[in-house]
Design a protein around this nucleic acid. Structure first.
Length: 538
RNA sequence: GGCGACGUGGCCGAGAGGCUCAGGCAGAGGUCUGCAAAACCUCGUACGGCGGUUCGAUUCCGCCCGUCGCCUCCA
């Protein structure tokens, strides 16, 4: 089955044929590091992260590059506002950006070039463009002359005439054509600058991506991606300068652009004050997987209208998938299979697994239809729960193997989507085991102290002080202790105490399920509840 | 003004000329359970309007209405 992708350049879905068989070079426009990244950025980075993961899953050797724009007006302005240097701002923001990417489960980028590290390459390109007559120098600035490049407009599907129709910006009179764009900007006083043959200055925005993508991937590389807003002028200009420079085409084989994200039906903009940062989402205790799921429930080219309610819905949906894996684990631990049943590679195993995989691929091969791919997972989840019930009633080796296989394929396909399911023994030591520790760090202080209060109210033993010190280090232990108290209460049918404990834990965002497992009572930290509590306390 | 996208059941959202059905969230009833939770079962006669093509269109074409994006920095 061949992979088809929508190419902005042609406006059609096309079969993806790499420049070099089995290898894909991919360049995604990265952030200008002047602030924390917002969820619109995140949508873009997550979308292309999944595309990269899927390409690798398909067996392609992918080189994934994402630049960091660390010199720009916005950075300079920010530095001025904060009375610091542009370097300082970009360093801080770059670090924050990398942290956010990791939180979102975006795999590390293979090459992460910075604009300021590639000034010589850019100067080289600009010089050649001047030599070839595509660019001209005016008073320390260098402009690209769009009328010299006959394909100008081919990406955004507009002619120069059409573009002029919508002019609403004052035109620099030194430009030969209003659409000419800066390759090099003359330095203003007190701005970071680099020496050049045309005087001190700094690069224009578009040239960095051309210089860096050509350096690391070379002319005619496979995929160049970014937000839809970059189609014009950024990517259009990249094509112009790169193809003019190289005297060849195409610069890029496939152009991919993700749809925009709005907030409550409004464009996310600083002027509207509705920018939501990735950090804010994480600080508000939402599960990063839920945000990822929210993105993936939409096709990457479609717009998304973001609201916190939708994020909560995605949280529920994610937990639905995660519950299955936890339930499988528990069942595998609890139910012992009679040793007489033999292990068979039953037809069912291969059928369910291979059908799921095939449907998933079919969806993803169609321009990365993650929404349809997710439906495959949800369908499997339903089927698996039914099998699970049967297994509990009649634990055969065959059923066990099937459940293990289903668990594995969940991890396999979940990984392609970058979804990280919590705890499971199915993959043994390969996956991070309890996510619990991580989650605990996110618990608001007050909740933790509430938990302690509850604990101390329940336990009046003489060793309280000592216990306190010890337990503070291990939230899980306390919780298990509380759950143990509850368990004993339930055993003597003291429903009042049992229910009281459960309700109070619920009030802290801890959901308790009366399912016996070898590890004790089952409990789950519920993001949703925490959010509710958090909202109420504000 | 120019270019373009979109309009699917309470909400979100895939999708295809007719085939039984996307999927998720929410809601109702039921099964299980001390009660919950989780899970499962059942429940919605959806495709903006008007024409056209067709044996048949929500899916193709045209027009209209509506929403949004780009044309300026923006993922």
């Amino acid at each position: 089955m061949s992979l088809r992708v929508y190419n902005t350049l042609t406006g059609k879905k096309e079969e993806l044929v790499p420049r070099e068989e089995g290898k894909i070079g991919m360049y995604v426009c990265g952030p200008t590091v002047y602030n924390y990244i917002h969820i619109g950025n995140a949508r873009c980075y997550v979308s292309f992260d999944v595309i990269r993961r899927y390409l690798r899953y398909k067996g392609y050797k992918v080189i994934y590059i994402q630049n960091i724009t660390d010199i720009d007006d916005k950075i300079i302005n920010r530095a001025r506002e904060e009375n610091t240097t542009a370097e300082e701002i970009s360093r801080k923001c770059t670090r924050a950006y990398l942290e956010d990417m990791e939180s979102l489960g975006v795999e590390p980028i293979d090459v992460q070039p910075k604009a300021t590290g590639h000034i010589p390459e850019m100067l080289g390109m600009i010089e050649k463009l001047i030599q070839k007559g595509y660019a001209y120098v005016v008073d320390g600035d260098v402009f690209f002359e769009v009328t010299k490049f006959e394909d100008y407009g081919k990406l955004s599907h507009r002619t120069l005439e059409e573009m002029r129709a919508g002019e609403r910006v004052e035109i620099d009179p030194r430009k030969r054509h209003p659409m000419d764009f800066a390759l090099w900007k003359k330095a203003k006083p007190c701005e970071p600058s680099w020496p050049s043959p045309w005087g001190d200055g700094r690069p224009g925005w578009h040239i960095e991506c051309s210089a860096m993508s050509l350096k690391y991937l070379g002319m005619g590389f496979d995929i160049h991606a970014g937000g839809q807003d970059l189609i014009f002028p950024h990517h259009e200009n990249e094509i112009a300068q790169s193809e003019a420079y190289a005297g060849a085409k195409p610069f890029v084989r496939y152009w991919l652009h993700n749809g925009f994200l709005s907030i409550e039906k409004e464009k996310m903009a600083k002027s509207l004050g509705n920018v939501i940062l990735v950090r804010e989402i994480l600080e508000r205790k939402y599960n990063p997987n839920a945000l990822r799921l929210l993105f993936l429930e939409h096709h990457y080219r479609s717009p998304i209208d973001f609201t916190l309610d939708r994020l909560s819905e995605s949280t529920e949906a994610f937990e639905r998938l995660e519950n299955l894996l936890g339930d499988i684990d528990d069942a595998l631990e609890v139910c012992s299979v009679s040793s007489t049943s033999q292990i068979e590679t039953g037809e069912d195993v291969s059928r369910i697994v291979s059908e799921t995989r095939a449907k998933f691929k079919e969806a993803m091969d169609d321009d990365f239809n993650t929404a349809a791919a997710l439906a495959v997972l949800f369908e499997l989840a339903k089927e698996a729960h039914i099998l699970l019930q049967n297994f509990k009633a009649n634990p055969t080796a065959e059923a066990r193997d099937l459940l293990i296989e289903i668990g594995k394929i969940f991890f396999e396909l979940g990984k392609v989507l970058g979804l990280e399911f919590g705890l499971s023994i199915i993959q043994e030591s390969k996956i991070k085991l309890p996510r619990t520790q991580e989650l605990l760090k996110l618990l608001p202080e007050k909740m933790v102290s509430d938990l302690f209060d509850l604990y101390f109210e329940l336990s009046q033993g003489p060793d309280t002080k000592e216990t306190r010190a010890r337990l503070k280090e291990d939230f899980t232990k306390i919780l298990n202790t509380i759950l143990d108290v509850r368990k004993r209460a339930r055993e003597r049918k003291d429903w009042k105490t049992a229910d009281n404990i459960r309700e109070r834990l619920n009030g802290m965002g801890i959901e308790v399920r009366d399912v016996d497992t070898p590890r004790g009572y089952k409990w789950k930290f519920s993001f949703q509840r925490v959010i509710d509590i958090y909202e109420r306390s504000r």
